[in-house]
Amino acid sequence: MITAEMRERVTGWFAGRLPADWQPADVTIDREEITVVLTIDDVALESPSETALAEARAGRASAFREDTRERRMEIAREAQHRFERTVSWGLAVGDHRELWTHVAAPVMTRLRQPQRLVLETLVDAGVARSRADALAWCVRLVAQHEDDWLTELRDAMTAVADVRAKGPAA
């Protein structure tokens, strides 16, 4: 469980450690990884088509990634040592958002036949290449359609973790 204090420590550290022109940063934390998505200025093109704008944003993201690689690696090493989690990076340029080298952590689960049949249907229909891909697809779909509910649930869990942390030591 990631507590509010842990979130504050991590986001505060990155706010102080990142260069001013890399702000604001969206920092997401879980058990294995800290993902930092930086936001940079959008491209300015006169009367661009959607295709030209999308390519310009992708080009700006690619250039930023290459130009900042060493500095990001240095910051990531410090954060990984401090917080004992892998640091991954991403970038937002306008409505273009991309993640670079981020963790794909294996998760084991036990499913009964009705749940396995759902995964098999997705594989057989070509929606997913494997059961693992099908399960990831299902998780993405739930996250997409139930974002408000999941946010409320995470906030409630954080509040519980904060109350537990203030309680008596075991």
Results as ranks from 00 to 15, higher is better:
residue 104 A to Y: 05
residue 24 P to M: 01
residue 2 I to G: 01
residue 7 R to C: 10
residue 95 D to Q: 12
residue 70 E to S: 14
residue 107 V to F: 01
residue 168 P to S: 12
residue 39 T to H: 02
residue 25 A to M: 04
residue 147 D to S: 01
residue 4 A to S: 15
residue 54 A to V: 01
residue 17 R to C: 11
residue 120 E to P: 00
residue 108 M to S: 12
residue 88 S to M: 07
residue 114 P to K: 00
residue 81 H to R: 14
residue 90 G to S: 11
residue 43 V to L: 08
residue 130 S to W: 03
residue 34 I to N: 02
residue 160 V to Y: 07
residue 6 M to T: 11
residue 24 P to D: 07
residue 44 A to D: 11
residue 151 T to I: 01
residue 138 C to V: 07
residue 83 F to C: 01
residue 117 L to E: 14
residue 20 A to H: 10
residue 114 P to F: 06
residue 54 A to L: 09
residue 64 F to D: 03
residue 77 R to G: 00
residue 8 E to M: 08
residue 78 E to V: 14
residue 34 I to M: 04
residue 113 Q to D: 15
residue 30 D to K: 02
residue 41 D to Q: 08
residue 39 T to S: 11
residue 113 Q to S: 14
residue 130 S to Y: 05
residue 17 R to L: 15
residue 53 L to M: 13
residue 38 L to A: 07
residue 5 E to R: 13
residue 105 A to Q: 04
residue 59 G to T: 08
residue 161 A to E: 11
residue 155 D to G: 08
residue 2 I to M: 05
residue 54 A to R: 13
residue 32 E to Y: 01
residue 10 V to K: 04
residue 62 S to C: 02
residue 16 G to D: 15
residue 10 V to E: 03
residue 117 L to F: 14
residue 38 L to C: 06
residue 73 M to Y: 15
residue 169 A to D: 06
residue 134 A to W: 10
residue 29 I to W: 04
residue 71 R to Y: 00
residue 157 M to P: 00
residue 157 M to W: 08
residue 96 H to F: 13
residue 17 R to P: 11
residue 122 L to T: 06
residue 128 A to C: 02
residue 104 A to Q: 12
residue 95 D to H: 11
residue 147 D to T: 03
residue 57 R to L: 05
residue 80 Q to H: 03
residue 68 T to Q: 12
residue 52 A to D: 12
residue 96 H to R: 12
residue 126 G to Q: 11
residue 45 L to Q: 04
residue 169 A to M: 05
residue 3 T to I: 04
residue 109 T to D: 06
residue 115 Q to C: 13
residue 132 A to F: 09
residue 66 E to I: 09
residue 79 A to G: 02
residue 124 D to P: 07
residue 145 H to W: 12
residue 55 E to A: 14
residue 85 R to F: 00
residue 139 V to L: 05
residue 144 Q to S: 10
residue 89 W to M: 06
residue 166 K to L: 14
residue 96 H to Y: 15
residue 71 R to C: 05
residue 103 V to M: 10
residue 16 G to I: 00
residue 109 T to S: 11
residue 148 D to L: 06
residue 51 T to D: 15
residue 146 E to S: 07
residue 11 T to H: 08
residue 151 T to D: 01
residue 161 A to H: 05
residue 72 R to D: 07
residue 155 D to L: 06
residue 20 A to Y: 09
residue 21 D to C: 09
residue 22 W to G: 09
residue 69 R to D: 14
residue 121 T to W: 06
residue 168 P to C: 07
residue 104 A to M: 12
residue 123 V to E: 03
residue 30 D to E: 02
residue 73 M to T: 10
residue 9 R to G: 01
residue 89 W to H: 00
residue 68 T to C: 08
residue 140 R to C: 02
residue 30 D to T: 13
residue 74 E to A: 15
residue 105 A to V: 07
residue 1 M to Q: 06
residue 158 T to H: 04
residue 125 A to R: 07
residue 72 R to A: 09
residue 112 R to E: 12
residue 169 A to Q: 09
residue 142 V to N: 02
residue 62 S to W: 12
residue 29 I to S: 05
residue 13 W to G: 01
residue 81 H to E: 15
residue 161 A to C: 05
residue 119 L to H: 00
residue 60 R to S: 12
residue 14 F to Y: 05
residue 124 D to G: 08
residue 36 V to W: 01
residue 53 L to A: 14
residue 163 V to A: 15
residue 123 V to I: 11
residue 41 D to I: 06
residue 158 T to W: 04
residue 162 D to C: 02
residue 101 T to I: 08
